[in-house]
């Protein structure tokens, strides 16, 4: 059963990341996704230290708070102190991440957590430590995916409008900041929930690559969301078999598989550009 669980979990993570990543991409904020993925580290470590064990609820809360804090502080640096957005992002996430690394080494003997585990994850351990019928990680990710889909379906028009034209959206009374922080809250939540399995760095590739590939092949936001999920899921499945074939790290192979998809799609679009463009008019 384990291979199936790994593929299911990989697909769930890929779908969550793909959906959120589409909005990050269109808001030109993919690097903020990257920043959050790194900056949740101190949140995870602190909740670990405070709760004294691998308490998932505490970790989810701690890391979501850390993620939102990163978003706040990047906004603060770029809006109030007038640092460029990318510089502000770079400063904040390396800072947060460094704090996390220092905390891990300070408390290394007290907690069962190391940098490699947080950074790279290991989806292969899935379900090894508990004998529940369906591993808890899958349930958790399923609930998060449900929340994200609900969020996007209910808030579709607000998300569309604040992403495309924030000034107009605000002029009709939509609170841009609210939707921004809800989105970032979900990115934090997803990052944390998946770090054990795919690691906080590879989450970033799931956040960026499938949406980027989907963006190349469609001119409709709804289709972009669906295609990004499909591309992510295909990446997760083929990545698993790639890892088995190469006997390599599973999460890394999934990320490589997504990258290969992006390249193939890019070549397809370049080679068939005229056809794709003329079709895409409607």
């Amino acid at each position: 059963m384990q291979p199936l669980y790994i593929i299911i979990l990989g697909s769930l993570i890929a779908s969550c990341c793909a959906l959120l990543g589409c909005f990050l991409l269109l808001r030109k904020m993919t690097m903020l996704g990257d920043a959050i993925a790194h900056a949740v580290l101190p949140g995870i470590v602190i909740s670990y230290i405070v709760s004294g064990e691998r308490d998932h609820t505490a970790m989810l809360i701690g890391a979501t708070v850390a993620g939102l804090l990163t978003t706040f502080s990047i906004e603060f640096l770029s809006k109030k102190i007038k640092l460029q957005q990318d510089a502000a992002t770079g400063v904040m996430f390396t800072g947060f991440f460094a704090i996390g690394v220092i905390l891990i080494s300070l408390f290394a003997n007290k907690i069962d957590l190391d940098q490699d585990c947080v950074l790279y994850g290991e989806i292969g351990y899935l379900g090894l430590y508990n004998d529940a019928f369906i591993p808890i990680e899958i349930w958790r990710m399923l609930i998060i995916l449900g929340l994200i889909i609900t969020f996007i379906v209910l808030g579709y028009r607000q998300l569309l409008m604040t992403t495309f034209d924030l000034a107009f959206a605000s002029s009709v009374g939509i609170m841009g900041a609210l939707w921004q922080y809800l989105l970032m809250g979900f990115v934090s939540l997803t990052t944390v929930a998946s770090f054990e399995s795919v690691g906080s760095i590879l989450v970033v590739s799931f956040l960026i690559i499938p949406p980027a590939a989907a963006y190349l092949i469609t001119h409709s936001l709804q289709r972009m969301l669906i295609y990004a999920c499909l591309i992510g899921i295909i990446g997760a499945i083929s990545g698993y078999y790639l890892a088995v074939f190469l006997d390599s790290a599973i999460a890394a192979a999934m990320s490589v598989a997504c990258g290969v998809e992006l390249i193939l799609i890019f070549i397809y679009v370049k080679l068939w550009k005229e056809r794709v463009l003329s079709k895409a008019v409607y």
Binding site: L26, L160, M161, F164, A169, G173, H219, L221, M224
Partner: peptide, 24 residues
């Protein structure tokens, strides 16, 4: 808003933009 204030490469079509005017 000024036309240049938005990214016109956004994946959506004309009628979806107009429908934003019907938000309320």
């Amino acid at each position: 808003p000024q036309r240049e204030s938005v990214d016109w490469d956004f994946p959506t079509n004309a009628i979806d933009i107009v429908l934003m005017g019907r938000y309320h």
